Computed example of a mutant assay.
Amino acid sequence: MMGLNGAAVFVIQVFGGLYLLLVVLRFILQLVRADFYNPLCQVAVRATQPLLRPLRKVIPSVGGIDTASLLLAIVVQLIVMSLTLLLTYGVVGNPLQMLIWAVIGVAALFLKVFFFAMILMVIVSWVAPNSHNPAAELANQLCEPMLAPLRRIIPTMGGLDLSPIVAFVIIQLLDTFVIGYLAQMTLMPAVISRLI
């Protein structure tokens, strides 16, 4: 029975995590005003549209922020965490605590998207600087709003752009000392903290 529960948790985490990634990506795409004609953007749009369309009818955007996709991301994270706890321990946590964990999880994924987009952007800039690959273009569109203010502060050294290094440090500090600290302070169980 334990083996079946473990397999079910794995499947829920993989497919729930993949859908959650698409929802968070959809939120970020609107936040950074990315090109929605990019084929990778279209994947996120098509996968999330069935649930977002009805949500948007009742939850309007606030200040240009797509609150419907942000709420959907929190709900998906909440469902994945609840099912993980239910199948692992046979119980679900306090609803308020679960909601806090879901928000922490979405924030952690938000940082991871930027982290890996920057890794892709840096690698492509070294290997194929003028690439028109959809993944490379999307990575540039995701990272540019974060890197542009840093470039104004940090001068280039010998033609080398140091802003991605500073951005990596900022993301790592936020992940370790804000997200990690919040997870500890809210007594997030190990089976949940592995999700973030």
Rank of each mutant, 00 (worst) to 15 (best):
F177W: 12
L162I: 05
W101H: 07
P134V: 08
A68M: 05
A107Y: 07
R151Q: 07
K112C: 00
M121A: 08
E144L: 12
H132D: 10
T67E: 06
P95A: 02
P145Y: 12
Q172S: 14
L70H: 02
W101V: 00
F114S: 00
V91L: 05
S69I: 07
I154L: 14
A68E: 01
A117W: 05
F177D: 03
L109W: 05
I79F: 13
T67A: 15
A68V: 06
L138T: 10
L111R: 00
L99H: 00
L99C: 00
M157V: 15
A135G: 10
E137F: 06
N133I: 03
P155M: 08
V127Q: 02
Y89K: 03
V91H: 12
V91A: 04
E144D: 12
A136F: 06
I171P: 13
M157F: 15
I171K: 05
L138G: 06
M121I: 00
H132Y: 14
G159E: 06
L111E: 00
N130T: 04
L147H: 11
N133Q: 08
E144I: 04
E137I: 05
A128W: 01
I165D: 02
A108K: 02
V75E: 05
G93S: 13
M118D: 07
S82K: 09
S69W: 07
L162F: 14
M118C: 04
T156W: 14
A107S: 06
